[in-house]
């Protein structure tokens, strides 16, 4: 009898451990990743590489090593990786789009140890990872000046950043009287944000700093990133959340993003990072088309992609193909 109940106790004590494993895996994500099924999609472009469709570059198929790229494991990054990967395939490059995995750390590690040849990251995030001591900036040029040498140190080259931005957003309900973050100062709001926010100068510390915003919040609620932020906001549990600018729920649920009038949030333009080895092998034949593509992507495109993947639950590779076709790029 005693042995029986003891064995049962052990089995049950393991259950919360498993639950915690799930939590730990879930809370690491920046977004709810709806597609994990976006496996290697080499089919879409490779057969058409001889086709006369690729008008923008020379007819000659570039010769060089396979370009391996992998999206970070949340839906926006997966779609971005598909867009860059399918575009390069259509240009005649030999591309392998790996199954999305990991986040920024894993992506940068991939460049450093040679597992990956192309990643697309957000420049403010890249700076936080590679040059954490440098002051963050709302000006992308300043950030690029800091991270370009840091990226070179890990064996990569930072290409031109895109006008598309997915940065921090101070989000309130649509009926809020505030239009800028400064307006929140007298409103006694309850703020909801991730557990990183209270210790980050670009988040709660900066919002409360009298030299920057000097806001006094009525309370702070720790909320993990994702749809819970929207639920908490619409049910009046919190009055403001720190979200990202391209979260499709913001417009979907009638919220609004307040203007960062003091320039607290760092610039988060997307920018490709290519491994030095692959860039040396191809030269401008690779960098040119990538820069052309980056220049074409806008913040509205990111938002539209996220709406399709997260709200309409479409697959990232299909969304990427459709966008590239609509722009006449493939």
């Amino acid at each position: 009898m005693t042995t029986h109940s003891k064995r049962r106790t052990v089995a049950k004590l393991l259950a919360p451990l498993v639950a915690f494993g799930l939590v730990a895996a879930a809370c690491g994500s920046d977004d709810d990743s709806s597609d994990s099924g976006a496996d290697t999609t080499e089919a879409s472009g490779s057969e058409t590489s001889e086709a006369p469709g690729s008008a923008s570059t020379d007819a000659a198929v570039p010769d060089g090593p396979t370009i391996r790229l992998r999206g970070q494991d949340f839906s926006e990054a997966i779609t971005i990786a598909e867009v860059y990967g399918q575009y390069l395939e259509a240009q005649g490059f030999d591309v392998e789009i790996l199954t999305p995995a990991g986040f920024r750390t894993e992506a940068l590690d991939g460049i450093q140890n040679g597992d990956l040849d192309l990643i697309i990251d957000y420049i403010g995030g890249t700076q936080a990872a590679l040059a954490p001591d440098a002051p963050p900036s709302a000006d992308p040029e300043e950030i690029v000046a800091v991270i370009r040498p840091a990226v070179e140190e890990i064996g990569g080259v930072l290409l031109d950043y895109s006008p598309a931005v997915d940065g921090d957003a101070f989000v309130v309900r649509g009926d809020s009287e505030a239009t800028t973050i400064s307006d929140v100062a007298g409103l006694d709001y309850v703020l909801g944000a991730s557990s990183q926010c209270p210790e980050r100068p670009q988040c709660l510390i900066g919002l409360e700093d009298p030299e920057i915003y000097g806001i006094t919040f009525a309370d702070f609620v720790t909320l993990e990133f994702g749809p819970l932020l929207g639920e908490a906001l619409s049910s009046n549990e919190v009055d403001a959340v720190i979200w990202n600018t391209t979260a499709p729920q913001i417009t979907d649920q009638g919220f609004k993003v307040l203007e960062d009038d003091q320039g607290l949030f760092p610039a988060q333009n997307i920018a490709p990072i290519v491994s030095t080895a692959v860039l040396d092998a191809y030269g401008p034949a690779l960098a040119g088309p990538l820069d052309d593509l980056s220049a074409l992507i806008t913040t509205d495109d990111l938002l539209a992609w996220n709406t399709q993947t997260d709200i309409e639950l479409r697959e990232s590779d299909a969304v990427a193909t459709e966008w590239l076709e609509s722009k006449g790029l493939i």
């Binding site: 639950a19 809370c27 720790t222």
Partner: peptide, 25 residues
């Protein structure tokens, strides 16, 4: 008792806050 800390990941507090904040930070 061993499972209650999940509340910290769902908008609550309790002892799970240390695990949550530790992971997050």
């Amino acid at each position: 008792v061993a499972t209650e800390p999940i509340r910290a990941f769902l908008g609550g507090d309790g002892l799970g806050r240390y695990v949550r904040d530790g992971f997050g930070q």
